[in-house]
Design a protein around this nucleic acid. Structure first.
Lengths: 232, 232
DNA sequence: ACCTGAACACCGTTCAAGT
DNA sequence: ACCTGAACACCGTTCAAGT
């Protein structure tokens, strides 16, 4: 057994842990292996430290997850802050902010699910929503309509819509044929839809162009809100 | 130590476990204590059985959760099946189906989060969506617009919109005042909105009437879709 | 065919002990 | 002030053993 009576000179001076380093490491860990791979033990390992050391910088795992959301929202606020608003055109300003938030969230596929599962509200997220509400307010939205608008947008205001179906499975033409035949028996209408869509466009392997669908729904809502505003 | 050489006559003949009984117990367990209280051990305890016995009726926990979603979706399909469709009025038919699905989901607050977290698709859910697509199809929607419509509705088709903020905290008037003052400093626009809304209506303790907000957003989307349909 | 008990590999978290 | 090692109370899941 070897006693470390003097410090090993070959040990490079490890830069000390900090809340920022912990959060950053957690985010890259989630980027690499999904949110379920973010455990205190694995996170400690990535930082070259025992899991228990993390508790000096983060109260517990809940606070760690809250911090991750807050960090992502900070990046969104930074990006959105650089978009200038041409007065009188609330719709394109809102559209740009939302799509810019979406760009950042797309880099962190685990973030939408985490955001929705959080029960504590992130302060930076509140700041983001405050800026959106301010946009509507200046555009002459009534209080009630502003409130309705935020509910109608929901998570779309942050740039994501939770997909209920995962269409990322790649099927070769033969598999696709038998799949569609099975579908047609039980679910004729879905089969009708998928068949035509995939027939139209063979270039996309997934059935849906998520970005196009997101923008369609976003514009549908924004147009509806503008109509309500103008009517008032 | 007491050996059970003969069966205890006072032991009532336990009705045997079955997949249905397991799923039903899991659902009531989630209703009582939230989804995080559904563990194999607690579920076994509720059924008077060791956790390991469950594996005779359910492959693993993932399959258990899938089964719970499937069971809820079955109830929705049953309820929706009783709604007759007056031809030519797709909008109120869709509205009724969605709000009827919502009624069932409201009884199981854990269900929306579970549905969104599932990566496997429930067969019964596919059936539900097939019926909605059929409704639009018969109403003369083009394939593309039908597809857009399903994306625009998203989880709203099932009757829920994930709330990003939890407003269920009850504050007495005094707490509310100091809360609003803090808000006003950092988030002037949110403060503006909340203040007016809570001032308007003291009868609702939460800031929002979730049902009203849900219906507003639903109608906004349905109206937008009808406009697109008529334009084509 | 179904249920059990012990065991395994993981969790988050505590606490006293080290430096 | 920060980090560690051992321990605790939980997980999901396996496997051989019982009936």
């Amino acid at each position: 057994m070897e006693m470390a009576t003097r410090t090993d000179p070959s040990a490079k001076p490890r830069l000390p842990l900090s809340r920022e380093r912990v959060l950053h490491a957690a985010i890259t860990l989630a980027d690499e292996g999904g949110i379920e791979s973010v455990t205190m033990r694995k996170l400690g390992q990535k930082l070259g430290v025992e899991a228990m050391s993390l508790y000096n910088h983060v109260a517990n795992k809940e606070e760690l997850l809250d911090g991750m959301v807050d960090s992502i929202m900070g990046a969104i606020n930074d990006a959105v802050g650089e978009i200038e608003v041409r007065s009188g055109d609330w719709k394109t300003a809102m559209r740009r902010r939302v799509l810019s938030a979406r760009e950042i969230l797309l880099r962190h596929p685990w973030a939408p699910g985490l955001i929705e599962s959080r029960t504590n509200v992130s302060a930076t997220m509140t700041g983001y929503f405050d800026s959106l509400i301010g946009l509507l307010r200046e555009a002459g939205f009534s209080i009630d309509l502003t409130h309705h608008a935020m509910h109608a947008l929901g998570s779309r205001a942050l740039g994501f819509a939770q997909e209920l179906y995962d269409d990322s499975q790649e099927l070769d033409p033969e598999e696709m044929t038998t799949f569609l035949q099975q579908m047609a028996g039980h679910y004729p209408n879905i089969a009708w839809m998928i068949q035509e869509i995939t027939h139209d466009d063979y270039t996309t392997l997934g059935w849906c162009d998520d970005q196009a669908e997101f923008e369609f729904a976003l514009d549908l809502i924004l147009d509806g809100l503008e109509r309500s505003r103008a009517r008032a």
